[in-house]
Amino acid sequence: MKEENPYWAKRLTQSPFSDSHFTPQLKNKVLMRTSTKSNNRKFTSITVATLLPVAIVLFGFFIFARKDTLQTIVPSYFGMATASMSEQKQYYKNGRLLISLSPQHEARAGEMNGYIFHFEEPFENFLGKLMTIQAVNLRSGLVETVSSEVIKEPNIGYPRLERYALRFALPLDGLWRIEVKLDNNLYGTLMINMQSPSWEITPMFQSDVYLLRGFEKQVGFIDAGFKAGKDQKYIWHFWGTEEKLNGPFEVKAIKEGSDNLIDVYASNPLSSANALGGPLNGADRALPTSMMLPEVGRWRLLPYVHGKLLDPIVVEVK
Rank of each mutant, 00 (worst) to 15 (best):
E162S: 14
I178G: 08
N28V: 12
G188Y: 12
R33I: 15
A135P: 02
R163F: 15
N260C: 13
I178S: 04
F62Q: 11
I222P: 09
W176H: 11
T47R: 03
K227M: 09
V317G: 03
L166V: 01
L211V: 04
L212N: 08
S267T: 04
F59L: 10
H118I: 15
L280Y: 09
T13L: 14
N125A: 15
K233F: 12
I235K: 14
K244H: 10
I178P: 07
A83F: 06
L51Y: 12
V54C: 06
L287A: 11
Y304T: 01
G277F: 13
S76A: 08
Y158A: 11
L293R: 04
P294W: 13
S45D: 05
Q25K: 08
K129T: 00
G141Q: 06
Y265I: 00
E144H: 02
L52Y: 03
S198H: 00
L52I: 01
G174I: 06
D68E: 02
L287P: 08
I73E: 09
F205C: 13
P312R: 00
F64T: 07
P303I: 00
F64G: 01
S148E: 07
A165L: 00
Y91P: 10
T189I: 04
S102P: 07
Y115H: 04
E144L: 10
F59S: 15
V251M: 09
W8L: 12
E149I: 14
H306R: 10
R298L: 13
V150T: 15
G225T: 12
L127T: 01
L212K: 00
S86M: 07
M191V: 05
T72S: 15
A286Q: 13
I156Q: 05
K27V: 14
K308D: 04
Q25A: 15
R108Y: 00
T23S: 02
K318M: 03
M191L: 10
L245W: 03
P279A: 08
N268T: 10
I235V: 06
F117G: 11
R300H: 07
R160A: 08
N260D: 13
W176I: 08
I63P: 03
T241Q: 10
R66W: 14
F215Q: 00
K2V: 08
S147T: 14
N40C: 14
E250V: 01
T82A: 05
I222K: 02
A286H: 04
G257A: 02
V209D: 13
